[in-house]
Structure formats: C-alpha cells, structure tokens
C-alpha cells in the first residue's frame, strides 16, 4: 500500500505530487495508483527509492527509462521548487527579519543571499526547460537521427552550473547549523532549517538524475 510507504518516509509526499498523486489515496496499492494515474510503475519505484535511500542509485535500471518521462518528472520538480519550497523559505526569512531584533542584520544578509540564489536558480531552470530539454527531446525522438555536423553538444556544458547552485544551498545550511548564534524564534528558525534541508536533499537527487541519467542517456544517441 502506498499509504505505508508514506507513513514510513513522509519526505516522499512532495515527490508523489510530481507524479500527479495527491494525498487521499486511501488503501490503494502502488500498482493500482500507478495504473489509475497512467504512471510507469518501474519509473515510479526507481524514483521513490532513489529519494528514500541516499546510497541507492541503480544506474543501469535508470538508463533504461523513457526520456520523455524523465523530463516530465524533472519539469514537475522545478514547478515544486518555484511554487512551494522557495516561497516557503522566502516567507520564513522575511518573518525572521521582522521578528528577530537581535539578529536582524544576519537575517537580512541571509535573505539577500537567498534572493540572489533564487534569481540564478530561476534563470537556470528556465534555460534548462526552454533550451536543453527541448534539444534533448528533439535529439531522442525516433525520426531525428542527426547528421554528425549537427550534433552540437555544447549545451551539456551547462551541467557544471548545478554544482555552483548546490554549493550555495550547502553554504546556507552550514551557516545555519554551524555558525549562527542561538535564535529566539524557535518556530520560525526550525521551519527555516527544515525547509533548507528538504530543498538541499531534493536538489541533490534532482541533480543526480539529470547528470547521471538524463545526460548519459542523451550521449547514447550520438
């Protein structure tokens, strides 16, 4: 039953949403839910297992998945970042700037840091969706075996940007956990910490799927 999976690891809930699955699935099994949502069960299981277990990454199995499906999933993840987790972090940072008088400066700075991260991040995913994913879909569609001279792969250089974005989120996490003084507003501070941890983990898995599954898959077409 899918319910049991979520009770065991509630972090998977936003991952389910990306497949169009909403809470309220009662006692349905994974098979039933995949069938009724038109989801490839293999793909679904691979993704939730990669999310659940940090060490697990069955490269071979993942490489056999359908490119369209992977891209659809990645785009849905982008949407989750943009509409849920980033606004949530922004809100809690604004609250901290307003409420915490003793560390106003630090939170202002953190807010600025996060805003800059957000701009860069949005630019990155927009480019990814409009240029890279489109190119990949062209490249991998059945009728389009390109001529050698048309095989311009320079867009894959883009991959490096991931690590810079990851570094920034990682820095925010380190500053928060290792260097920030005790903060009085426990509720907001916890909310901030949880959101950053969730975002960091999600981005890491997201990046792994792009860098180690999607891009290697594209290279197979050349």
């Amino acid at each position: 039953m899918l319910r049991e999976v979520i009770e065991h690891d509630s972090h998977l809930l936003p991952v389910l949403n990306r497949f169009g699955i909403k809470l309220g699935f009662g006692d349905a099994t994974i098979q039933q839910i995949c069938d009724s949502h038109n989801i490839n069960q293999e793909f679904f299981l691979a993704i939730i297992n990669v999310y659940h277990n940090e060490g697990y990454f069955p490269t071979q199995k993942l490489l056999e998945l359908d490119t369209n499906e992977i891209i659809r999933y990645l785009v849905e993840s982008h949407r989750y970042y943009k509409t849920q987790i980033i606004p949530e972090i922004e809100q809690v940072l604004s609250d901290l700037v307003q409420n915490d008088n003793s560390h106003k400066d630090i939170f202002l700075l953190l807010k600025k840091f996060f805003e800059n991260f957000k701009d860069e991040f949005n630019k990155h995913i927009e480019q990814e969706e409009t240029i890279i994913f489109t190119k990949i879909l062209e490249l991998t569609s059945a009728d389009a075996r390109l001529n050698p001279e048309e095989k311009d792969l320079s867009f894959l250089d883009f991959v490096n940007i991931h690590s810079q974005l990851d570094d920034k989120i990682n820095d925010i996490k380190n500053l928060l956990f290792r260097y920030l003084p005790p903060i009085d507003d426990v509720v907001k501070c916890n909310a901030f910490a949880m959101a950053i941890l969730r975002f960091e983990k999600d981005l890491k898995d997201h990046g792994r799927i792009e860098d180690r599954v999607l891009y290697p898959k594209v290279k197979q077409y050349l």
């Binding site: 630090i106 700075l109 840091f113 810079q164 570094d167 920034k168 820095d171 290792r178 260097y179 920030l180």
Partner: peptide, 26 residues
C-alpha cells in the same frame, strides 16, 4: 569553515564579526 561560495564566506565573516555589515555591498 565548510563554506564554499564568496557570499557564504562573506556571511561567515559578518557572523564571526570579522567584518562589519556596513562595509559590504549586499
């Protein structure tokens, strides 16, 4: 420090009071 980016290091320097927030361009 475990901090990699320039903005991260800047924040670290402010938190540790190595520089004053007024001296930096946010």
């Amino acid at each position: 420090t475990g901090v990699k980016t320039i903005s991260g290091l800047t924040m670290y320097a402010v938190i540790k009071q190595i520089i004053d927030i007024k001296d930096i361009n946010t």
